[in-house]
Design a protein around this nucleic acid. Sequence first.
DNA 1: CTGAAAGCGCTTACAG
DNA 2: CTGAAAGCGCTTACAG
Lengths: 334, 334
Amino acid sequence: MKPLSIKDIALKAGVSITTVSFILNGKAKEKSISDAVIKKVQKIITESGYKPNQVARSLRTGNTNIIGLIVEDISNSFFSRIARLIEDKAYKKGYKIIYSSTENKIEKAQELINIFKSRKVDAYIISPVKGLEEDIQVLIDENIPVILFDRNLPELKTNYVGANHFEASYQATESFIKQGKKNIALVTTDIDVQQIAERFEGYKKSILDHTISYQKDLVLNIPFKQNEDETITQIIALLTNSNVDAVLFATNYLAISGLKALKQMGKKIDSNFAVIGYDDHEAFELHTPSISTIQQPLEEIAEAIIKLILAQLSSKAKLPDQKIVISAKLILRN
Amino acid sequence: MKPLSIKDIALKAGVSITTVSFILNGKAKEKSISDAVIKKVQKIITESGYKPNQVARSLRTGNTNIIGLIVEDISNSFFSRIARLIEDKAYKKGYKIIYSSTENKIEKAQELINIFKSRKVDAYIISPVKGLEEDIQVLIDENIPVILFDRNLPELKTNYVGANHFEASYQATESFIKQGKKNIALVTTDIDVQQIAERFEGYKKSILDHTISYQKDLVLNIPFKQNEDETITQIIALLTNSNVDAVLFATNYLAISGLKALKQMGKKIDSNFAVIGYDDHEAFELHTPSISTIQQPLEEIAEAIIKLILAQLSSKAKLPDQKIVISAKLILRN
DNA sequence: CTGAAAGCGCTTACAG
DNA sequence: CTGAAAGCGCTTACAG
């Protein structure tokens, strides 16, 4: 059973496909189609359940009404929550989302951009990998809206939405210092992106500003691709061999691994040993004791992203680029 | 800067677009294009970075190579993990995923199917809502591959992949009974789907089989749309007003709410009070004490789904429907 | 060994 | 007030 086409509707209504098309696209009045014809055609459309073929429409108009979402890993709760919020907002404006995960691999990210390009997505929301600058620049040159989020690529002149990680980890570290902590560790990842670098810089600056000496061996750099067991082993080693009295984790999954490490060690979080996580995770609040964390306001981030996208999509002229920085909040839970 | 078309390539190569098309689609040999021409055209394609317009290709061939994924909520970790696994597997076969969340609303689900239909997705992976039978039947009638997962709609003759929830919650309840529990509560949701009904039936049957009396007031039915604070209040009420010594939660988010309730009450999980969750969640293992749970094997489920999809997509004839039931496992953690 | 032409289902400038 | 026709970028049956 082949689906109906505009031709079938035109035939049934005894009008041309031009007329049907105008009515479908709300241009009936503008094109001064008579009310009688509009009524008749609309009745047939409703009764037959005809839905225009968007693929044909896309080929003709050049718009697909699809937004490409490229993230590190859609199963990471930070990204899946953002994805959900973006989906909701985009949906209301008639846009659908096609997603894919880069796993932080530059080759995969490049391939994804190419695939999305050949599918003619209208706009891109990308949590980029370093090394993707050139590919994104090509999109920008072709005047396709691009919003970077979570991670900025400073060399690129395009839109960006993200949190102020420097400030947030500065504050988190400072809160440790105010509690009298002296040996504050940072567990971070080796992903080479500005966002992660900022978290380290904020930590370091805070320590130096408070005249504590910066101890290089208290910074643990976990390779991104490393499996969790190895990560837990490394964290246990860090905490066993040193007199660390506080740990800041630079991502939510590292904090989760850290909590598992503590559990294995039988080490308690108390007045002698403090922990702060990054991003939120249900496990943080539920943990005994609850874990303080640096929270990125997901709703605000998603809102900013979709606003930028829609502004670009509805404007013929190229809009000025915006770099939107949203305050992450330190949520103290003990 | 307009992207290159097949016409541009043909022009540059001094051949017809037919020839270029054959080469692009690997039909060069079959169509006996000379090696010299193949070489020349391929060189131009590589150098120019030409990528065929998939929208045009889709309009012509009728295939989009896009699979529609319709779930309850993409930000729920059960679904986002499945989404990630499916994405990986589909990607390797050249398929992309377009997703959307139904929020368990039948109208939204129907709308999504319509939107995906007009975008001509090649196949559907649906975690359905009751009431969607007719719309899905239309897809089946049109010979479009449909795989239901997580929830079956028994009236529909189509493919399904899911866990044996009856068996799993029977076992979980039985494990409580073997621990000597007498007043076992079930916290479940009011979503009217077989999957949830099975969890209740397994619980009830297990209780009756072990000659414990079934107490209706120990089953708490949480409305799906209810906000979490209200849910926590209800769980606290259940645990305060009764002598419940064990609780089985029918979903992961209900278990999380339950753990929050316990934390608020200051009630400990110990030899006098046991808890089992559903699906997994990082918070379960990390919790003090760790929370036992019924785990659905996500990898197996995703694998089964994608296998069914690909089999359907690559077969011209309609394949026999399969209902694949995968064993959920009770993971005891204390 | 290769190409001209039809057609997928739409939109829209143009004509009347 | 309405329609015939061109064209979006491909694929493929057919012809030579």
